[in-house]
Structure formats: C-alpha cells, structure tokens
C-alpha cells in the first residue's frame, strides 16, 4: 500500500505539472497488476488501446477510458504515452472514425491541446464512453493526423 500511495502522489504531482487547459487532474496510479481491480487502484479501466503512429509521425503508449470511485469518467493517457512534439503541440480527440473527420462535428469530441509526453487525463461524460472508438492525435495547424489508438 505504501507503494501504491507513492505512485498516486507522484502521478498527481506530474499531472499537476503537465496540466493543460481542458485537462483535469485525477489522482490515479500509473499502473497496477490488475487494472480492473478497484479495491487496489480506486479506478476502473473500461477500455484500453495502444497508440500507433501515422503519416511518418511517432505515437506510442496506452490510452484508456476509466472511471474513478466517484463515477467520474476520463480519457487517460498513461505515462508511457509519446508522440511528436517537435512541431509544437497537438490536439487530442475522441472520434467515431479511425481518421478524424473535422467536417462531421458529430463524429468527434475535442479533449484538449497538449504539448508534453506522459500522463494526461481528460474528463468526459458517461454517455461518451461507448460513443467513440478512437483516440486521435491531431496536429491542427498542419492538418495532419499523427496517430491513433483504438479503444476496446
């Protein structure tokens, strides 16, 4: 339990340091032996996906949809999340399609603009959990999709 507490504090501090607009601070550990075990992690992992890069850009790491003990839902980028920030920043989206379609506003939900690798958490509503199947990394200025993770 001491280890779990330490991870929680460390993650909280990191999340605080890297927090962007529209992003929320959520006190959850980075990993655990049983991701669905709410008795040890205090969160439930509902869906998971791994990022893959697209269009010659890097993207790797884990995306999750979780809820905490208060039944608040989040899209969570785990600490192993990495993408290409040499260009500046990227916008994270939930999407119904594997490739973001900005012309169809009903097919997407903007999460936040981020500019650092590692752990991030974005609040979503419960009815969005099953509405979207992909987390998209989008470079808005250039209009290039850097990567995606399919949530299952």
């Amino acid at each position: 339990m001491k280890l779990i507490s330490f991870l929680s504090i460390a993650t909280f501090l990191f999340a605080l340091a890297s927090c962007q607009k529209d992003e929320v601070i959520v006190q959850v550990p980075d990993s655990g032996p049983n991701p669905g075990d709410t008795t040890t992690l205090a969160v439930t992992v509902l869906k998971t996906g791994m990022f893959t890069g697209q269009n010659s850009y890097q993207a790797s790491g884990t995306a999750q949809i979780i809820h905490d003990i208060n039944q608040q839902h989040f899209v969570r980028l785990v600490s192993d999340f990495k993408t290409s920030f040499a260009t500046g920043s990227v916008t994270m989206y939930l999407s119904k399609n594997s490739n973001l379609q900005l012309s169809d506003a009903t097919s997407l939900h903007k999460l936040a603009v981020i500019n650092t690798n590692g752990s991030h958490n974005f609040a979503i509503s419960p009815n969005q959990v099953n509405e979207f199947q992909f987390v998209i990394i989008w470079c808005a200025p250039a209009g290039i999709q850097f990567g995606r993770a399919e949530l299952k």
Partner: peptide
Amino acid sequence: AFSKSKTVPGEQIN
C-alpha cells in the same frame, strides 16, 4: 518561431 492557431486556442506549430 511558433505560429499560433487561429482556430484551436492553445495549438501552435514551430
């Protein structure tokens, strides 16, 4: 030289 997006607040590209 970071060029700021006019459409997505907070987005920028070098």
